[in-house]
């Protein structure tokens, strides 16, 4: 498993209830959501056309992209609508809240500027980034 790091991302009060905010962590742009009982974070680019997910409307534990209404699970990062988008996903990042601060667990390799990333790290990232659907099918095959 690749090395990860917990990053203090934002104060809880900076993300309004049931809304998302873009959080910049080094070269990364994340979309952080306040669902009341929990904070969830995913990549801020919709796998469809790169729409800003932080600007979407929250429905349950999913967000709807403001550009073409793709719906993405904030828990897994998987696309759950449209059917043609199933199998695509964004990375979902583990989060925790301590003393009014939301922290996000980020693979260290992602924090490097893309140009500086080593070959091996990229492949490893690819592996850890695979959608839960394809992960499940791989496990089944195994």
């Amino acid at each position: 498993m690749s090395e990860t790091r917990w990053v203090r991302a934002a104060c809880t009060e900076h993300v309004p209830l049931r809304e998302g905010r873009e959080v910049l962590i080094g070269p990364l742009s994340l979309a952080l959501f306040n669902l009341g009982h929990q904070y969830l974070a995913v990549d801020n680019q919709c796998p469809h056309k790169g729409g800003p997910l932080a600007d979407g409307i929250v429905t349950g534990t999913s967000v709807v992209c403001p550009l073409h209404s793709w719906r993405i699970s904030l828990e897994t990062g998987d696309v759950d609508r449209p059917a043609s988008g199933r199998g695509l996903c964004v990375r979902a990042y583990p989060t925790r809240v301590e003393d009014g601060v939301v922290s996000v667990e980020v693979p260290v390799a992602l924090l490097a500027r893309p140009a500086e990333r080593a070959e091996g790290a990229a492949a490893e990232l690819q592996e850890s980034h695979a959608c839960t659907a394809s992960k499940a099918s791989k496990e089944e095959a195994a």
Binding site: V7, R8, A9, H14, R21, E22, V23
Partner: peptide, 17 residues
């Protein structure tokens, strides 16, 4: 009207490697 209505948030610590 809301917190950080227009600007993106920046991580609260430096993360550059």
């Amino acid at each position: 009207r809301t917190a950080a209505q227009f600007e993106p948030l920046h991580a609260m610590e430096t993360v550059t490697i």
